[in-house]
C-alpha cells in the first residue's frame, strides 16, 4: 500500500515510506508553492484584476489556479513520447505512472495538452487565454459578479481581436479556445476528487 503522489507539480512521484502523511504533504506543498506564487504574480499583471475586491481576487485564484497551471505546464506532457516531466526535471512514462496509480486524470491531461499545443499559440496569445481562464464570473463565492463579468468580457474581446489579427484564415481557433474552458473545469473537478482521495488516504 505504498503511497505515491503522481502529480508533475511534485519533484518525483515516489514518496519516502518512512515519512508521515503530514511530512509528505509539507514537501509537496514546498514544491508547488512557487508555481502558485507565479500564478498570483501573473494575475496581478492582468489589467483590471487589482481593481476587483480582494475577496474576489482570492476567490478567482482559489478556483482557477489549478486550471492556469494546467495551461502553463501543458508542455510537461509530451504527447509524442507519452511522458510527463516532473518539477524535479525527471521524465516518467505514462505506463510507469499508471503502475503507480495514475488514472483517468492523466489521460485527460494528455488529451487537453495535445489539443492546446496543436493550436500553436504564441506566448502573447497563451497569456491572454490564461487571463480569460482565471477571470471567470461564474466561480463560486464571487461577491461582485458584475465587476468580474465586465473584466471577463474585456479579456475575451481582447483575445478574439488578437486571434483574429494573428490567424486571419483560421477563424475556428478562437472558438476552439473558448471550448477549452469547460474542458479545464472538468479537469479541475477530477483533480479536486483526487486531492480529496489523497487527503482521506
Amino acid at each position: 500500500n505504498r503511497m505515491h503522489l503522481v502529480c508533475p507539480m511534485n519533484t518525483s512521484p515516489h514518496v519516502d515510506p518512512q515519512k508521515s502523511g503530514h511530512e509528505v504533504w509539507e514537501e509537496f506543498s514546498h514544491s508547488f508553492t512557487p508555481a502558485v506564487r507565479e500564478v498570483v504574480e501573473f494575475a496581478k499583471k492582468i489589467p483590471g484584476f487589482r481593481e476587483l475586491s480582494q475577496h474576489d481576487q482570492v476567490s478567482l485564484l482559489k478556483a482557477g489556479t489549478f486550471e492556469v497551471l494546467v495551461v502553463r505546464f501543458a508542455s510537461l506532457f509530451d504527447v509524442k513520447d507519452r511522458t510527463v516531466t516532473f518539477l524535479g526535471g525527471k521524465r516518467y512514462s505514462v505506463d510507469s505512472l499508471r503502475a503507480l496509480g495514475a488514472g483517468d486524470l492523466l489521460n485527460s491531461m494528455f488529451d487537453f495538452s495535445e489539443k492546446l499545443m496543436n493550436l500553436g499559440l504564441s506566448e502573447e496569445e497563451m497569456s491572454l487565454f490564461t487571463a480569460v481562464v482565471l477571470v471567470s464570473a461564474d466561480r463560486s463565492g464571487i461577491e461582485n459578479v458584475n465587476s468580474v463579468e465586465a473584466l471577463q468580457e474585456t479579456l475575451i474581446r481582447a483575445l478574439r481581436s488578437l486571434i483574429t489579427k494573428n490567424h486571419p484564415n483560421e477563424a475556428s481557433i478562437f472558438t476552439k479556445l473558448l471550448l477549452k474552458l469547460p474542458d479545464l473545469r472538468s479537469l479541475n473537478n477530477m483533480h479536486s476528487e483526487q486531492l480529496l482521495a489523497f487527503k482521506v488516504h
Partner: peptide, 27 residues
C-alpha cells in the same frame, strides 16, 4: 472537503502572495 483550495493551504499561499510585503517580511 467542499473547498479543496482552503483545505490544502492554497488560500494561505494566495493571500500572502497577493499581499507581497507580508510575504517578503516572512522570507
Amino acid at each position: 472537503f467542499s473547498d479543496p483550495a482552503s483545505n490544502l493551504g492554497l488560500e494561505d499561499i494566495i493571500r500572502k502572495a497577493l499581499m507581497g510585503n507580508l510575504e517578503d517580511r516572512q522570507e
